[in-house]
Design a protein around this nucleic acid. Structure first.
Lengths: 355, 355
DNA sequence: TTGTACGCGTTATCAA
DNA sequence: TTGATAACGCGTACAA
């Protein structure tokens, strides 16, 4: 491949135009080109216009790789999520993309598949890609956080969202899960339910701790005793929900309402109730968490807590970019807490509007 | 920030270890280091071991940015999808990630939100990030393909998947949509349905052309006349499905089966049928396309065509990496066609197993 | 306001 | 088998 000479010839083939090409063409230095393109102050308006015009004409495209190497900092953000199917993470990722793109950053997304080992690999991959910052939502099984020490040691800004390490001082954007559990339970009580059960998530995860606490607080504030038998630990799959619901139905005094910490589990519960001939919401009222798309498809439609997913993604990017811009502040922990919103549907409505 | 001197001191702070550091420490040249690390042939086994050992000890991490700049080629793949919610694209992306990671590449994902303008921006962003190759599934409204000329001119390998440009010679991984339409329709006919309707997608998109053709072929092969009134054009949202189904019900001779080119549209159809008091599948049998998660939630559950999404993603990456490795072959168009699979469920079963 | 010179970390080429 | 040297494209002290 013949490289072009030192005189004023231009890349004839599809080869990208560099600053040096522009400089040669205009008979100025690359410094001048650089300054014109990056809106530097010490540059004459005339030269600047000339450069910009030629850049446009020759369709100059900056080489971000070179700039990144120079600055020791790419324009890439790394994202690690447990998975991407379902409404919640897909929407958060969408929010992240929007905010990042607007700020001139691109986004690399990795899925840990709820696996700590994969999560570690993801982190390595992303650090290897020289990302400017990291956005992470933990895998279910992550108890050991040593892989994040690398990140801190390296000085790469790090923001957690939704699923954060318990009892660690970190930068994070989270939902007020406690409030979500509270309003759901309160709503079920307001519908006249006497025995509200809770299908709870893995106790070591902060989000499920919050939802559980909100449930308990709502009962307490309403002057109802908390019955330990009405709280069932489960993972949050549909099958777990089925198991949990069967256990609740087998109680001497079964519940007349269920608040599940996840919609998939609630879906399982609904199907068990239907199979058992219980009417929803007349016999058992239901409320879930995440406002998944399928809550509008079931019969009856499911009441659920919306988490404002896209906002969460945007807020996380905003926080991350502040840290990127000002690495000095990276040590001071920051938290943003978003408020949940209850979407009331037929599965919990016992009033005249009930099914 | 004091930079370390030229003698044998090492980065004390969190600064990354470079090849130069290793070279200094061992008293060899960076060339040797490079060769040892990249498994080059002309290197002594002894030196190689020494280098690898020290690299491990000092936790050397290669700077991909620098390598990419030097080679003019990053280890990033760019992906453009219309959206990421729902089973199909989420799974394809998962397949892409798996295959890419295994080959040592990372993936940048962009959503066009079914918008050509955004799609163009995505392409620019990805080219700007110096991706080694591009994987694209077109937005619904993309008729003009000029933004891909840039890609070709630049020599960046490009593979389309699922939604490809009509009548353009391109590299692509697609489903045999015609076969999908065929087996669905054939199945409905085999269930004894007499008047099979089709809710068809936008006629300019290749995937919907295929599904429509498969439907027509199955009718023809069964010796049934095609009734133009039974084919309704629609977009593929739930609302479009509802509208289409209402139109079909209003016919003088309504259908007793519907094959929809997308599951969301089929969901809309199902709801209209239920509201109209029609029994599914007894009065009207249903079959859809994409095997979305919610096909297992509806009552009855929906028969649908599975597209082997993850395989599609993996196949696309495989093809792309072949082009990356051998840019000479980039001009010869290649196509991979995957076979669909019909998932039969209650919505189409009229036999003894029917609802 | 403009230009010169150098370095970011890696790899390809050529010479020893 | 190893090393010296240059180059990838950009940005920035420093000098003019």
């Amino acid at each position: 491949m013949a490289r072009r000479g030192t005189s004023d010839d231009l890349p004839a083939n599809g080869a990208p135009v560099s600053m040096a090409d522009l400089a040669r063409e205009l008979g100025v230095s690359t410094t001048t080109i650089s300054r014109a393109l990056s809106d530097h102050h010490s540059i004459g308006p005339a030269t600047k216009q000339k450069v910009l015009k030629l850049a446009k004409k020759l369709n100059y495209q900056p080489n971000h790789l070179a700039a990144a190497l120079r600055r020791g900092q790419s324009r890439l953000l790394g994202v690690v999520v447990p998975y991407i199917e379902g409404r919640f993470f897909a929407s958060v990722v969408h929010g992240i993309e929007q905010a990042a793109t607007k700020a001139g950053y691109s986004v690399i997304i990795c899925q840990s598949s709820e696996d700590v080992v994969q999560e570690r690999r993801n982190i390595d991959t992303l650090l290897g890609a020289q990302v400017a910052g990291l956005l992470v939502s933990l895998a279910r099984g992550t108890h050991d956080f040593r892989h994040f020490d690398k990140v801190r040691k390296r000085g790469t800004p790090l923001v957690f969202f939704d699923r954060t390490p318990a009892a660690e001082a970190v930068n994070a954007v989270v939902l007020n899960d406690r409030a979500g559990g509270y309003i759901s339970t309160q709503h079920l009580l307001a519908q006249g339910c006497q025995r509200v059960a809770h299908i709870a998530g893995p106790p070591h995860m902060t989000i499920y701790q919050g939802r559980r606490q909100g449930y308990l607080d709502a009962l307490a504030d309403a002057g109802r005793p908390a019955d330990a038998a009405l709280v069932v630990d489960a993972d949050m799959t549909q099958e777990d929900g089925e198991r949990a619901m069967r256990a609740l139905l087998a109680l001497p005094a079964p519940p007349d309402a269920v608040f599940a910490a996840g919609d998939s589990a609630l879906l399982g519960a609904l199907q068990v109730l239907k199979a058992a001939g219980r009417r929803v919401p007349a016999d058992v009222a239901l409320a879930g968490f995440s406002n998944e798309g399928f809550t509008l498809i079931t019969e009856p439609r499911l009441t659920s807590v919306d988490q404002h997913c896209e906002e969460m993604g945007q807020a996380a990017v905003r926080m991350l970019l502040e840290l990127v811009a000002d690495p000095g502040r990276a040590s001071a922990q920051r938290q943003v807490v978003l408020q949940p919103e209850l979407m009331v549907r037929e599965s919990s409505l016992r009033g005249p509007a009930g099914a």
